[in-house]
Structure formats: structure tokens, C-alpha cells
Design a protein around this nucleic acid. Structure first.
Lengths: 119, 119
DNA sequence: GTTTATGCAAATTCTTTGCAATACT
DNA sequence: AGTATTGCAAAGAATTTGCATAAAC
């Protein structure tokens, strides 16, 4: 619950190291990884692979059930502050793949400078 | 040159660990990281952040100059064999971002099962 | 001979694993 | 008691840093 609360309040995709730093001494590092994995497997969180070096986890929408994620929305990663956010309103058009390739999941991250770092 | 040759021959995005394993004892791990970074900064390679846990590097097209990358093409990451390829022919439509966000670079990776692992 | 690239050792960071201890039912 | 969750220690993998050596110009 503490993990979920923090992610909900942060309004962005967070990594295990961020959680560990935020919830200092409340939980062990391993517990956090296991919790994030469980939430991911059960459709509460989805992963976002950005260029920050650590996996980020963000809230799922209501269309996710279990391992069947549906996240055809955009993500933005700020190369200045390293924060990553979901743009739930900007849908990703599923591209047509060459024959023989089966899509399961989409990871679209735009890198750039966010609003906060713009100033 | 050995690094470039290997990436060209492999026809996919490769990571430093892959290179280190492929070019055993030819170069030091650190030299490979530095070479990859130099190539990336000079527009020979671009990075692809997939869910494999290590950064991948792939050949740039002719539109890249220095740090100014133009890779609005699709990438595919196979969750079975963990290989990642570029689909240069499938262009990514640059999404419209909310006000205040400035795009620099696009990282679109489709996760799924590749042709080889399909069988 | 001064710049540049390489190697080595070590440190840092992220993530996973094994096992014992604890809490839950 | 028996299952599931947590903590701790440690291992493993990816990446970076510092410094000394070797190569290139």
C-alpha cells in the first residue's frame, strides 16, 4: 500500500531505487522489487524502459488484467531531471510489423526536456 | 573497426556485454563502453532502450550527424531470445506532446516474439 | 613530446537468489 | 501447523571512474 500510494502521489513512473530512497528504512530493497513485480504481474503497474538505467513502474489503467497489459500510450523521459511520465491521453498507433513478428507490448518513450526543466 | 564490423554483420542492436563476449580478449570492457559512447556521440550508432537490462547500440542511418540523431523508426525486442532489431522501413509518427514538453529523440520498442523464436 | 586511446583495478549502481526469520490463516 | 511475506547477506550483471601505461601524431 505504501508503494502504491507513493506511485499514485508522484504522478509519474518511478524506479525501485527511487522508492527505496523515498521509503527509507520502511522496507527492504528486495521486498520493493518483489512488490513491484507482483503489481506488474497483476495488472496494477506497467513497466517503462527509458534511458535512465533503471526500470520504471507506472500505474495501469482499467484495461489491464493480470499479465495482459494494454498500454498503447506515450511516455516522456526528461534527460535533464531523469523523470518519466505517462501521457495517457496520447495513444500510440500500433505499427504494422514485418511478417513473422508478433507484438505483445508497446514501449514508446519520447526523450527530451520536460516542462519543469524547460525554464 | 572491429566493433563496427560486428554490429554491421549482426544486423541488429547489440549491447556492450554481447560485444565483450563476441570479441573475447580483444579489447577491455571499458574500451568497448568508451568506443560505443564515442560512436553514439558522433552519429555512427544510436541507442535503443529495451527491457533486457542493458543498453543496445544499432547502426545509424545517413541522416544522423553528431549528436543530432534522427531515428523515427521502429524497434522490435524479442522477449524470448532477447534480441533487438531495427525496422528502418517502419517510421514512427512523431506524436504531439502536451505544452511545455520538447522532444529530442524517439525510442519506440515493440516487445513480442520474433520470427526465429516463432517456430 | 604532447595528445589520445587503452588496460587494469576497483567502485557504483541495479537486480536477483538463497535461506532463515517472521507474520498470517 | 502450514503458507506466504519479509529481511539480510551475498551474488551477479551493467556501467563508471581513476590512474598508470602504451600508442599515435
Amino acid at each position: 500500500m505504501d508503494v502504491l500510494d507513493f506511485i499514485i502521489d508522484s504522478h509519474r513512473a518511478v524506479s525501485q531505487p527511487e522508492l527505496e530512497h523515498a521509503l527509507v528504512h520502511k522496507f527492504d530493497r528486495v521486498t520493493l522489487y518483489r512488490t513491484l513485480n507482483t503489481f506488474n504481474e497483476n495488472g496494477l503497474l506497467h513497466t517503462v524502459a527509458d534511458s535512465s538505467g533503471s526500470m520504471k513502474y507506472a500505474l495501469c489503467n482499467t484495461h489491464c488484467e493480470g499479465n495482459n497489459h494494454h498500454h498503447e500510450h506515450l511516455h516522456f523521459h526528461c534527460t535533464s531531471c531523469s523523470e518519466t511520465v505517462c501521457f495517457e491521453e496520447v495513444m500510440v498507433t500500433r505499427p504494422t510489423l514485418p511478417a513473422g513478428y508478433a507484438a505483445v507490448d508497446y514501449n514508446f518513450v519520447v526523450n527530451g526536456i520536460c516542462r519543469k526543466c524547460q525554464a
